[in-house]
């Protein structure tokens, strides 16, 4: 059942035999499961350490993050859109933890069945779609259906004829959002994983004169440096960007509200 000969970057699948939608990348499912459990574990651990008095370090960081995110939402969306905070926080925390799992020596698992969960487009697309769907719902609930449709005639300053010409572009922009959101995260994490594999393979070079001991050392050092940069830094940045764009897309979902009221 396990596809031992899987070529690089592909995913081993299981299928229930009813087409594409019944086919699952089980390596991603395992990785996601680990990331979800880790996220839940960390979140509940943090909850158990919450205190009313002077906060511990973890609590202080979390409260700081919460305040930051709340400020971001208030600034970019609106004072009453605080329901975005838990969603954005979950996205950030989950993406961060899923990315940081790559810090572990995942090569010890056979056939690459554990990887950073976001190295699979299916995973990132799921989150991207979710965000954009919720954004559409929010946009309609704030602007009304008419206002929502009117939003596709941006920019509002132009004469009507010109605005009609913009409709396809606006629809395209909205459709592209989940794709860019998911591809950006996927591309970054997948490329990082590719680099990790490539650097790790340096250790496999066999030089007859010195055996392969030096290359293993060089490979390990390079891998450590790369992981510190790619996983810790890029992993964090990507989680933050995903969260930030989520908030910004919600903010864009309100576009035209002022104009609508002016009419």
């Amino acid at each position: 059942m396990i596809h031992a000969e899987a070529s690089f970057g592909t995913h081993p699948t299981v299928s229930l035999g009813c087409g594409t939608l019944c086919t699952f990348n089980y390596d991603t499912l395992i990785s996601t499961g680990i990331a979800v459990l880790a996220t839940l574990g960390i979140a509940f651990w943090i909850r158990s350490r919450l205190r009313t008095g002077a906060p511990g370090k973890v609590q202080a960081v979390f409260e700081w993050g919460y305040d930051l995110l709340r400020g971001l939402v208030k600034e970019n969306v609106s004072e009453d859109a605080l329901f975005i905070v838990p969603l954005a926080m979950t996205l950030f925390l989950y993406i961060l933890i899923a990315n940081y799992i790559e810090l572990l020596p995942l090569a010890i698992f056979p056939n690459d069945i554990v990887h950073g969960a976001n190295a699979d487009l299916n995973q990132t697309l799921a989150m991207g779609l979710l965000v954009i769907v919720v954004v559409q719902w929010y946009s309609i609930s704030v602007l009304g259906f008419r206002g929502y449709l009117r939003r596709f005639t941006k920019p509002f300053e132009l004469p009507l004829a010109a605005r009609i010409g913009y409709i396809p572009l606006n629809i395209l922009e909205e459709l592209v959002k989940p794709i860019t959101l998911s591809l950006r995260l996927f591309g970054n994490i997948f490329a990082g994983a590719v680099m990790i594999t490539l650097i790790a393979s340096i250790g496999l070079f066999y030089l007859p004169a010195v055996q392969n001991v030096p290359t293993i050392i060089v490979g390990s050092v390079l891998l450590a440096i790369w992981k510190a940069f790619d996983v810790l830094f890029i992993g964090f940045i990507q989680a933050f960007i995903f969260m930030l764009l989520t908030v910004i897309y919600f903010g864009m979902g309100r576009e035209g509200l002022e104009h609508e009221h002016a009419h």
Binding site: A6, S7, P12, V36, L125, F190
Partner: peptide, 22 residues
């Protein structure tokens, strides 16, 4: 259960499972 292989950017039922998990 059919074992198979999905390409790098193939989208399949995983996305649904991921969505529900999330």
């Amino acid at each position: 259960f059919l074992a198979g292989e999905a390409g790098v950017i193939d989208i399949n039922g995983t996305v649904i499972v991921e969505l529900l998990t999330f």
